[in-house]
Amino acid sequence: MDRLLANGTVNAAESGEGPPLFLFHSLLSDRASFDAIAPELATSFRTIVPELPGFGRSGAVEGGLAAVADRMAEAVRDAANGAPAIVLGNGYGGFVALQMAIRHPEIAAKLVLADSGAAFSEPGREAFRNMVRVSREKGLEAITDVAMRRLFAPEFQEQHPELMKDRRAAFLRTDPDVFRAACDALASLDLRAQLATVKVPVLVLVGEHDEATPPPMSHELAAGLPHARLEIIPGCAHVPQLQSPRQFLVALNGFLF
């Protein structure tokens, strides 16, 4: 069931009953990246999967990642009726969730930050700047191969042609201006000095072969958070919940359940 949150600005799918659990998707994907795990999560939680601002039917916001985080905080409060919620973010969604928890300390009871971090290395920042430049000059089509490589290892792409066709189509539906604004925000982001303010329990997950947000970023993130533990998901890249849903759900055991 779809519903509108935050005064009609955020579109979200909702299923199941129980404590509210929000799933924030990555920049190079969409909310369908959680389709393989949402049904099982919905047996224990009221699972809410929003389209982040500027994606799908959710309205865009100006003002960088802070504005995106504030909009999503409004959506979380709306859907959770003001109670603290569990928020799981993958990739860009993880950065949004972390920024939201920093700016709105009361918003989350627990966080799961999958394939995310607090700041990119200089090569990582340059990758975002390059994607902005090429997409502006030649369109999103020109960086689709790069985007898919950041999501999935080449071997996985070869073994799952139908999934890759779907994921390419999802990426090409992204609003180019929203994509470039997010890339600009991530290229300059540094939340490391604020990690100590996040007092809630955090599970940091990362795919062993993630090229977009490599494992050292998750090591640094977990080390900077007061109440975090890190788990590496073997054989996976940037979207482990799509690549190996069962492994991803097993990694959540003991933290969510």
Rank of each mutant, 00 (worst) to 15 (best):
I107H: 07
L113M: 05
R46L: 06
G16S: 05
T47H: 06
L252F: 10
N81D: 14
D115G: 14
G18A: 07
H104N: 15
F22M: 05
L225C: 09
G89C: 07
D166W: 11
L52I: 05
G56V: 13
C183A: 14
P215H: 08
A32S: 15
D184P: 01
V178M: 04
H209T: 12
T9L: 10
S121F: 06
V61Q: 07
E162G: 07
E17D: 10
V198F: 11
L111D: 04
A127C: 00
P19V: 05
L221D: 07
I233R: 11
E106I: 00
P226T: 12
A69D: 07
S121P: 04
F55D: 11
G124H: 09
A75I: 02
S135G: 05
R31M: 13
T213F: 15
A83G: 05
A101R: 03
A212C: 12
E158P: 00
V112E: 05
E231K: 14
V96K: 01
H227D: 13
A114G: 05
A193L: 13
G254Y: 08
Q243I: 09
R133A: 13
D30S: 15
P226S: 12
R136V: 02
L230A: 11
G117V: 04
V146W: 13
V146L: 10
P53Q: 01
R136P: 00
G56R: 13
G64F: 03
V76A: 09
G16F: 03
L189P: 14
Q194L: 09
L221M: 14
D2C: 03
L172D: 03
G63A: 03
D78T: 10
M131T: 00
F120P: 00
E51V: 04
G18E: 07
M164H: 02
A170Q: 15
A6N: 12
I48A: 11
L195D: 04
R129F: 01
Q157I: 10
P161L: 15
E122S: 03
S116K: 12
V68W: 11
L113Y: 03
L221R: 07
Q243K: 01
E141A: 13
A60V: 10
K165F: 04
A181T: 08
E211V: 08
P245C: 02
Y92N: 06
P215L: 06
L111E: 04
P20L: 00
A97R: 09
G91N: 03
V49M: 09
S121H: 06
T213P: 04
H160C: 02
A169D: 08
E220P: 05
C236Y: 06
K110S: 08
P19A: 13
M131L: 03
Q99F: 00
A212D: 14
R192A: 08
R168G: 01
G91Y: 02
L27Y: 06
P245I: 02
F128H: 09
A108H: 01
P201V: 03
G82T: 07
S116G: 10
V49Y: 09
L41W: 10
